[in-house]
């Protein structure tokens, strides 16, 4: 983990309706190779990005959300999901896509569901906030 800046990528829109989330993921994947303290947050409709079982076969659009798992290959600090956003959307905490990191022995899921109050602290402890 770098000693660099704390950068938080905030996602507040769902997939496919617009390209924002897909291009935001591209930024996060580039940011991940810089030696900084990178985290992601999923808020509001952004929580739909981590909904499992997405298939874009019918849309004939790229199913980009599978690439969130690639974040586990980098030194990403944390992936935060706001509990309140899940709750009002009828999404279950235990049913989110996992982003697993740690190659040999003791893998862990980077995705962490947090309350609004916890997320408030995360947001206010960053150096840079990037959002779509």
């Amino acid at each position: 983990m770098g000693d660099g800046k704390k950068i938080l990528f905030i996602n507040r829109r769902g997939p496919y309706g617009t390209i924002y989330a897909q291009e935001a993921l591209e930024v996060a994947l580039v940011g991940a190779v810089f030696d900084q303290k990178i985290s992601l947050a999923f808020i509001d409709d952004g929580v739909f990005l981590l909904r499992p079982g997405q298939s874009t076969v019918g849309l004939q659009m790229k199913q980009f959300t599978a690439a969130y798992r690639a974040l586990g290959d980098f030194e990403i600090h944390r992936v935060y999901v706001e509990r309140e956003s899940l709750q009002v959307r009828g999404m279950k905490e235990e049913n989110l896509m996992e982003i697993v990191t740690g190659p040999d022995g003791g893998t862990r899921n980077l995705v962490k569901v947090v309350s609004s109050v916890e997320l408030m602290d995360v947001i206010h402890s960053q150096d840079v906030l990037l959002n779509d």
Binding site: K5, V30, Q36
Partner: peptide, 8 residues
């Protein structure tokens, strides 16, 4: 990278 560089 130019965006990340600038933000740093």
């Amino acid at each position: 990278g130019q965006l990340i560089d600038a933000s740093i």
